[in-house]
């Protein structure tokens, strides 16, 4: 009885701290609509999201990481006439306003998935920004 109520209080405390942590973090670089498409183990995947930078200053995305895959890189798909090219990006400038990572454009590439990604799965990736620092994103696997 004692133990379970102590556990309850601790849980509440952790939740409150987590909520404080989240709101005390950089709340002016908002990242939303974080999703990935289903994928196969040993295959690749892509993560998409929307960054809303209302810090008043340009920031730079310098890396992405996750333990869901062997490697994680930032890529861009772009058309050159009729030809689709994909290019790794060492950094991506995030100007004030909205920057969208979306199919056929900027995306975080997951290389060598450890397991299948199925609709409804969740996992985390970490984005590192020059100014805002690290942002941990909760990714939902879904069909677009």
């Amino acid at each position: 009885m004692m133990k379970s109520s102590l556990l309850f209080i601790l849980t509440i405390l952790v939740l409150i701290l987590a909520a404080c942590g989240a709101s005390a973090g950089n709340d002016s670089l908002e990242i939303s609509d974080v999703w990935a498409r289903p994928g196969l183990a040993d295959g690749n995947g892509a993560v998409y999201f929307l960054i809303d930078n209302s810090t008043g200053e340009e920031d730079t995305l310098i890396s992405a990481s996750s333990d869901i895959a062997q490697a994680v890189e930032i890529h861009i798909s772009m058309m050159d006439g009729e030809v689709m090219q994909m290019k790794p990006q060492h950094e991506v400038s995030i100007p004030v306003g909205k920057t969208e990572f979306k199919p056929g454009g900027l995306h975080v590439m997951l290389i060598g998935l450890h397991d299948d990604l199925n609709t409804g799965d969740n996992f985390q990736i970490t984005l590192k920004f020059q100014t805002a620092g690290e942002e941990i994103l909760e990714v939902t696997v879904k069909k677009p």
Binding site: A71, E82, V83, M84, M86, G112
Partner: peptide, 11 residues
């Protein structure tokens, strides 16, 4: 990078 090589292709 880790992707080794990528292939540009008619889309």
């Amino acid at each position: 990078g880790a992707s080794g090589y990528l292939v540009d292709h008619t889309s």
